[in-house]
Design a protein around this nucleic acid. Structure first.
Lengths: 114, 114
DNA sequence: TGTAAATTCAACTCATCGGTTAATCATCTA
DNA sequence: TAGATGATTAACCGATGAGTTGAATTTACA
């Protein structure tokens, strides 16, 4: 549980139920019961998922009478986008074999019909 | 182990050692020994990490004599970038409290001094 | 042929994860 | 004050994850 923040975010997102919860929260705040409704698992299991998301900083839970309202916090997702962006050049800069093939094809054709 | 591809990628990236391996491979191909060199864990542990990365589609291993050359495959990272991009509007479109506050402040000031 | 090098496979340990059920806490309302 | 409602905590279980050590596999080379 003392994992670094980046690992905590990746681990939190490595579960389809938690990603579905995030997708739901992207459309607006919700209570735990509302979040649990679509899933075939117990409310307690959902509560655990929410704890994981909260520890990763992906959601914030606030008390409101006997309800707990959950809100998505996009900050870790932004960090994630920056992390993955480090690698963008690897798929952006026509580095793959197909692109090379197509470029070669074009050049060959140009040489043949100048 | 029958996890969906997205979960597999997130899970693979939820480990600092594996992320470090990827960072190393972003600079070029490497053998298992070369990849293991900076880490204080056994070669077998590294081999396991590579299996996880391979199953997630993040690397490709090819035989070459008694060596196994590892190469990064950026395709899953691209998928990941697209996934996180779904949420971009949440942090891009001045949706946070501070932005709202600053905009309100500006408008109030404009109303006061037209 | 035999040995060294590079890597994987196998078996094991320990911690964590995702789920369960049962109990508890917090708050509103009759 | 007593339920009812919403949610968390606790204790447990089976599966998986990350690491270990030791043995096996594959290939080059003397």
């Amino acid at each position: 549980m003392t994992a670094d923040p980046v690992s905590a975010v990746f681990a939190a997102l490595a579960d389809p139920t938690r990603r579905a919860i995030l997708a739901r929260l992207a459309t607006g705040e919700a209570t735990v019961n509302e979040l649990a409704e679509p899933f075939p698992i117990s409310l307690q299991a959902i509560s655990k998922h929410l704890t994981v998301l909260e520890r990763a900083g992906l959601i914030v839970r606030t008390r409101e009478a006997q309800w707990r309202r959950c809100r998505l916090d996009p900050a870790p997702l932004r960090t994630l986008a920056e992390w993955v962006d480090q690698y963008r050049r690897l798929w952006d800069e026509r580095h793959d074999a197909l692109d090379d093939y197509l470029r070669d094809l074009k050049e060959t054709s140009r040489d043949r019909n100048p």
